[in-house]
Each structure stands twice: as C-alpha cells, then as structure tokens.
Design a protein around this nucleic acid. Sequence first.
RNA 1: GCCGGGAUGGCGGAAUCGGUAGACGCAGCGGAUUCAAAAUCCGCCGCCGAAAGGUGUGUGGGUUCGAGUCCCACUCCCGGCACCA
Length: 879
Amino acid sequence: MSQMSDKYDHTAVEQSAQQFWNDHQSFLAPDDTSKPKYYCLSMFPYPSGKLHMGHVRNYTIGDVLTRFHKMQGYNVMQPMGWDAFGLPAENAAIANKVPPAKWTYSNIEYMKGQLKSLGFAIDWSRELATCKPDYYKWNQWLFLRMLEKGVAYKKTQVVNWDPVDQTVLANEQVIDGRGWRTGAVVEKREIPGYYLAITQYADELLNDLDTLDQWPERVRLMQANWIGKSTGVRFAFPHDIKDESGALINDGKLWVFTTRADTIMGVTFCAVAAEHPIATQAAKNNPELAAFIEKCKHGSVMEADMATMEKEGLPTGFNVTHPITGQQVPVWVGNYVLMSYGDGAVMAVPAHDERDFGFAKKYQLPIKEVIKVGDKAFSTDAWQEWYGDKENGVTINSGKYDGLGYTAAVDAVAADLAAKDLGEKKKQWRLRDWGISRQRYWGCPIPIIHCDDCGSVPVPDDQLPVVLPEDCVPDGSGNPLHKRPDFLNCACPKCGKAARRETDTMDTFVDSSWYYARFATPGNDSAMVDKRVDYWMPVDQYIGGIEHAILHLLYSRFWTKVMGDLGLVKYREPFKRLLTQGMVLNHLFSRRSDKTGIEWFAPEEVTLQHDASGRVTGATANRDGQPVEYGGYGTMSKSKRNGVDPNAMIEQYGADTSRFFMMFTAPPEQTLEWSDAGIEGSYRFLKRVWNFGNTFASELRGKLPATRTLATAKLPDNLASLRREVHLLLKQANYDLGKQQFNTVASACMKMLNALEKAPRDNAIAAEVVEEAFGILLRVLSPITPHITHYLWDALGYGRDILSADWPQPLDAALVQDEIELVLQVLGKTRGSVKVPAGADNKAIEALAIASEAAQKFMEGKPAKKVIVVPGRLVNIVC
RNA sequence: GCCGGGAUGGCGGAAUCGGUAGACGCAGCGGAUUCAAAAUCCGCCGCCGAAAGGUGUGUGGGUUCGAGUCCCACUCCCGGCACCA
C-alpha cells in the first residue's frame, strides 16, 4: 500500500501511478472477449516534434471517456499511432539535411514519452506509424483493388509548378502566386495523376449522413453542403456556332443545368463562363471581350468575394435557339458563371433569379415574368424576395405550361425536352473526384511501373509493398527518388523488359482514411484487416478537431464503403459518435515598431493592468515597463509566442492539474481560454483533495467500525443531508458524463469536496459516511485526474487499483427525505419558500402555501384564484 | 451574399421538461494566522437602494400563472463556403 505524505508531491504521485499501470499492463485491450467493447479513438497526431496544448486537450477528452467506460465494465480500446508522412518532414530535411525518416522517428519517440507522462490509458501494443511498410503496403494493395474496380483511374491534373526548383508545389507552398523557396512566379502545368472516384459514392455518402445521429449537426451539414446535391434538368440550346476549323462547338449544343426548369419560358439570355469554348471563339475577333475574359480568369474564386462582387458581362454576339419556343437567345459571357461547375453555362431568367435580374437591369436585357405567386404584382423596378419563390408559384405566360405548380411544370418541361432529345432530369454534385498523386518523396509510393511497351502496369500483389527508401535527403529541387536508380529501375511485370517505377506518392489523407481499422488488427502481415475488426469496429467514439470536419472524415467514410464493397468489412460507417473539440487559446500581446514591425510578447513576459473591478485595461512589458498592446485571445502559435509548453506544465503542476484544468474550464466543444490563474486554481483543488485524504487517514479511518452499518443505520440530520448531497452530485455527474459535459463533472467533484470538508469527524457513523462519500468523489474524479485518485484509493485502503473499481451509482436510500422545500411564488414572483412533508398531495401543499407568512404578506388579503403546484419544485399562487 | 452556431456578473462558465438566474472556479475586496511575506483558512462579491424592495440573461415585441429557455422581428459576434444556376 502506498504511503501518504503531508504535502501533495505531484511528481512522486504521478510516477508511482504510471509505474503501477506499466507493471500491470493496465491498458491492454484483449481481443475476442465476451465483454461489450468500447473503441475510443482520438485523431492520431502528425509527429511534428512535440505535443501542443490542442493535443493535450484532445487526448484528455479521449482518456476521460476511456477510463469512464473501463470502470463501467466495457472492454475498452484506446490506441495511438502516428500520421507520419507529410510535407513538414521534407521541409525539416531541407533545413537540417537530415532524412525525413530519421527526423520523423525521433519525433515519435519524444512525443510518445510526452503522452506517457500525461498518463493516458493507451494500448501501446497496437501502435502504428503510417510511414512503415507494414502499414502502407495495404494502401498500395487497396489502391490496386480500386484500379481493378474502376474506382481508381488516371487523368490529367493541374498543378503548381516552380520553374526554378523544377518541382511541383503544394498549395500551401505558394505564397501570393510565388514559390515559397525561390520566389519564382508559379506556373500552372497539366500532368497525369491518379484519382479516386469518390463521386461514385456521392449518393451513399449523402444518404448515410442520416444514420450518423451521434455526430454534431454542424459537421453533417458541412458534409452535405460539400457533397452538394442538386436535382434539376440538364438540357441544350441548339446552335450553329463553329470554331476555327469549321466544326460545330460541342456538336451544336449549349448545355446548361437548372433547378428551375419551370421558368424555362422566361429565358431571355444565356451566360457562359470565361473559359467556355463559345467565349473563346467569340473573343477571337473581339479584343474587348478577350480582355474581359483574361480579367475573369484572374479574378478571385472565393465564394465570399464573389458574392459581393459586381456582376459583369459582355455579349458574345452569338445566339442560340430556345429548345421549346425556337426563338433566338443571345449568349453573354458572365463573370459569375463557373467553368468547373456543370457545363460552364447557365440559362438566365431575370424575372425569377436575383442574380439574373440584376444583370438584366444593368445591361438592359428583357425581363419576362412567367411565375405568379398569389395576387402579388410583379414589377421590373426592383427585385422582391417572392420573385424566386418556387413553393407557391404557378406558371403564366408559358403557353402550354400555364397554370402548373413547380413540380408539375418541371416534369412537363423535362418530358418535352427529352422527347426532342435535348435534355433530361439530372442530379448534379458539387463533390469532385479525389486526386491522390503527389509529386513528393515522403509518402506512400503509388504501386505502378511504367513500361515503354505495356504502358502503366500495376505492381503485382506478391511484389508489395513497394518500399520507399528511407535515407533520401530532399533539397527542395524536385523529388529525390528521381536520383535513386535502385528505386527507379525495375522489370515490367508484364513483359519483363527494363521499366521505370512511378515516383509519385499518395496524398497523406489516404494514410489516415483507414488507420482506425488497422488498430483492430495489429501484426497481421497477410491481410489488410481480419475478423477482429468485426468485434472492434466501428469506432464508438471519435474525437478530433473541427478542421477535419470535411476532408478527413469524408475520405474515411468513402474508404470504408470501398472496403465494404470489397467484402473486407461489414460496417458502412466507421465512426459511430463524433466529438469535435474546440481550440486552445491564449492572450496575445504585441508591440508595433517602425524598425522591426510587429513584435510579439509571451504572456509570461508582460504584466496585466486591471481597473478596480478587475477588468483588464492594458499590459506592460516586464523588461522595460513600457505598454504593450493587448490583442485578446487567439489560437496558440509559435509565431505569436503565446503557446504553452505541456512539459513545463507537467513539471510545475503535474499531469493531473493540466488535465483537470482543461476539463473544468470549458465544455469540450467550445474554445478554451488558457489562464495561469485558472491552472493555479486547479492545482489548489488537487492539493485540497490530497489534504482531505490526510484528514481521512488521520482523523477518521481509526473510527471506522469493523462491520459497516451504513446500509441500515438511521443517520442524524446533518449526515443524512451530507450523504444526500453527495449522491445527488453523483447523479448529476453521471448525467453530465453521458452528455460529455466534463466541465460540470469536474465542478460536481469540487462541490463534493466542499461538502466533505465541512463534515463532522467525531464518531464512527460520520467516518462511515465520509468513507463512502470520499470513495465516490475519488472514482468520479479518477477519469480526469487518474494519478492522484489512483494513489489515494490505494493509500486509504479502498483498493489496489481504482481503474478496476466499479463506477458508483446513486442510492435511492440516500436520496429520500422526510420534508421538502418548495419555492413559493405569488403572481409568478419568488417570495420565499415553504416546507412540506415529502408525501404531501397538491391540496395539502396549496393550503400550506397560502397559510405561509410570505404568501399572506404578498397576497394583500386577496383570495387565491388559482394555485399551480410543480411537484418537488415550486408552488405559485395567482390572486 | 448564403449556410450553421452563439450573445448570461470584472472573467471562464452553470441552470436536464418553461419553474429560486448567476452553481463551480478565477479575479477582486475584507478578516484570521505570521515578526513579515508566501501558503492556508474564514467571510463578502450582478446592478440600484440605508432598508423594505425594485431591477436584471444582446435589442424590441408576443405566448404563459411563470421565459435565459418557446414564437416573431432586429443588432452584433464566431465558424464554414461553392456566385452551384
């Protein structure tokens, strides 16, 4: 049994607990057990060097849930791995002339030590790193299966090309249109690359969002918007516009997509994107149009910019034929039409589309009303919201379509277009296929061999993995694999002739798209996954940052569905419940100087100034006493010097204090504002827990009777109310844990301690009540602060291992009371309280309430017209 | 511009179904202890008021015996974005 020391020595306590967990292999999750499983996963980190506070928060949330479920009897798996491929390793290699592999592996070692010092209940036997061949072999294997199924395919892609370094740049390496290292103007180049046809799964990815009822609503919405389904009609305006060779452009059809086919009789012009072939052709003899097109191509493509930007256009001089009326319709080039969406052209109905309306007014184009909403009067003077109403509108001025509602009109128009072979109903997706080729060294090699005779040949399965050499040092000028004949040169699997290996590697989102499934099947080198996934998957709880709400989560869902279609897994969705934690913020202090620009100050380098009420009014730098500018809270970042080092925190206050502070200060989904005073407060609380442990050991434990009597004893009032309070707080904490609202769980623990510190200590029954209550407190607190609670649980004789103790449940016997206090209201205003017997019926309560002194005073002699009794809560007298 | 979320003391936040607004903590103030300080402990702490009481959850209205919570309109803040036809 551990010994109690007078003072809380967090270092000794935490080392002792971690030693115990290590000796007893406390966090191993056995496979194939009859127990119900709980798979708790936090997004694995990129091994950038050291943990930041965002990681600490993320993994603390996961650890609280892990320990809570372990104590509830689940077989819990909480694994950890490393998202180890990526650009930062190459940048570090360029800077330090160290191979990315070496840098990555040493970072992993260091960060693993940090995770252990925080006491996370991680099953390290399942650790994986995506840069190891035994992992990425299966990226390659699945990619080959996708090729066979037609889910993976090759096409040209546009990339950023640095002409000086002769290399492809990632978007983040392009700064203001120039290469980050060379400063050279970046060019657009078209090169071949591999794509995954995620659009084949668009329908399922969208529909299955409905099954993810334990995901945050906003994440599901973001995914739905990203997939972007719209149903409408794709149809063509016939034309005879020819290109220079005399051939009809697009076979004489201008294709458009519309969700408002019901307004087709209101079309007064068409608009095409600047890159559209008709625009290109029209610009040939029209310098003004050519200049306009060039301007459009350089314009912003950000939606927010575009939404407020002036709609501009120029006529092409060409006409197309309206497919229903046969009338001629002029074609314009519009800066608001995107080539990348649909066919890069739209029909314009100024009367019923706000953007078309504005455009038509600006360029004096005709506006033709074709939808009537009720008896509202249409006017071309100004746009009204209801012009675009499709629910309540009826077609007018539309010939044979007159008098139809939205759905009927769309159906009728689509049928006529189909009869003329000029169009059909169609679903349109915003989602595009996923390009996975990266012209980078530090990634998973794409398993393809290029042969002069046979073309691109997949690497046969028995030659997998294609192993990436780990000793290359990139220098920024292109992919170092190009200088590695031992990697490049190989035999064509088809014809045996000398051939060349593909040097492109896969997007690192591939690595993270299925790692959660591999955690369930560690060590299997003959299969990607095995039957153990049927037990562990899907992940019961996934925790990570909101920044992954779209890409990572969507790719993982897609990858799961592909694996499912290949018969590898039975589940269709990988993550049952999702928690997106908020960011960690800290104060920002800066000073602007003409010489050096903005200088940032770390929070410990300044002194805050407060006014009398405690409000922050300013700050001064410690080094010169001069004022600095206080910039409020911002995300922790190296450049702004407001980061907090987890190691320093652990050393000064301990892992438990850091964990407690993170859980207590804000609910998990909200941003968390760092505060030195706040962490002091958390430390103070843990010291008080420790001190109460000492009090219990010295003043109460000796008074405990050999046979406990608590279950049957009639308690004096003060002890009964203490016991009731603790059990009520326990009930609250259990409820909040279900809601994953950990801040109020922490506060319930503080309230329990506040109550315990006031408890009587002078007799055996008091000792029993305190023993039970402190045991509850230690267990409820243990998922948040596992070390101190482990130590006290052992030292105070509760048991050897708190993690294997049962989670406490509130007892009905502890909650009952003879008399209850109800809030007393007169005319809805609180006027005091009234005590009634626990079993009193409404009539009795009404009588007691009216008779009370407070009620008599505020009723001013009027009779009660009505009395409302809310059982257990309040009584309101209306008079 | 569109979509989503939000606004509660000096601060972080609490309030499960519409039922005592401000739990818990931080900061601040007063006191005890100390030669002194730190640490610790006790007390006070939305606003107006001497008190009784009044008032108060971004603004304006509404529903209700009763609204932070529900409804309508508005303001501001945060996150996301694709002029998506």
